[in-house]
Amino acid sequence: MKVGIFGANGRMGRVLIEALQECENTVLTLATVRDDSPWVGMNVGDVAGVGKQTVVCTGISKIRGDDVQVMIDFTLPAAFEHNLNWCVRNKIPLVLGTTGLNDTQEQQLHHAASIIPIVFAANYSVGVNVMLSLVKQAARALGNTADIEISEAHHRFKQDAPSGTAMAIGRVIAETLERNLNECAVYGREGKSPVRDPKTIGFATVRAGDIVGEHTALFADMGERLEITHKASSRLTFAKGAVRAANWLEHKKPGLYSMSDVLGLAEN
């Protein structure tokens, strides 16, 4: 599988280079950076610190789609539209890990998925996606009696809050309980507030140091509580999941897929 990376010099881009190097079924054939980036022309192995490779970083306006079978994008929302449109024009499947998309961008994503196959996930960790399945089970059993809180922690550089993964956990719970997350989510508490509404889903966010990613879904009832937690210690976990999704996309029909589809966790 010939794979390309948007934003190869980013934190996730560099780890993706490493993950692709370790995967026997894939080869990195395209790595993009901004046209004005000092990384243009640099060997991707030097960018990621994994030794010389055969590919150099190419300015985003110079890339071609004739030597790549799937693209992986973990860049910021500002680059989303350009990258998505390039994939659509060139009929290249996409593995998308960009979080913090607005409503218009989500509509663009759904339209693009009618033309090309796309895997879109807030988190590509296998463990996190198993966690989402477990959270759904917990919501079915405990959600109508327990108070529900979601906490997450990430490194100081992460811009969106709550994280895309925390929001994905919240959506799974809300959908399972037939609630509207936009109406029941509480994103912060300060000072004196009314007694907790049992239908709300609370979110707490930490940004500190070099925390890779930690997420906990708490179901607290009178006399007992259940906590479902995932902790990532390396971004390589996410990168390997994205590479797995890239391989899975081969020969898929246009559509918007999730990591649950990739892992066989999706319910029929």
Rank of each mutant, 00 (worst) to 15 (best):
V206R: 12
F203V: 01
L218R: 12
E178W: 05
T216D: 07
F219E: 00
R207K: 14
M222K: 12
A220P: 00
I211R: 00
A217E: 00
T176W: 03
N180A: 08
R196Q: 12
Y187H: 14
G191K: 12
F203T: 01
L177F: 07
E214G: 01
V212D: 00
D210W: 03
A217W: 00
R179K: 15
V206A: 09
T216R: 05
G188M: 07
E175P: 02
D210M: 07
N182L: 11
N180P: 03
D221H: 11
G191L: 07
T176Q: 14
T205L: 02
A217I: 02
M222D: 13
V206N: 08
H215R: 02
D221M: 09
L181V: 08
D197N: 15
T205N: 06
C184D: 04
R196G: 09
T216N: 07
I211K: 00
G213R: 01
R196M: 14
R207N: 12
D210K: 13
M222H: 11
R179L: 15
P198D: 09
G209T: 04
T200N: 13
T205W: 02
G209N: 08
R207I: 04
A217Q: 01
G188H: 14
P198R: 12
G202L: 04
T200C: 12
G188N: 12
I211Y: 00
E183V: 05
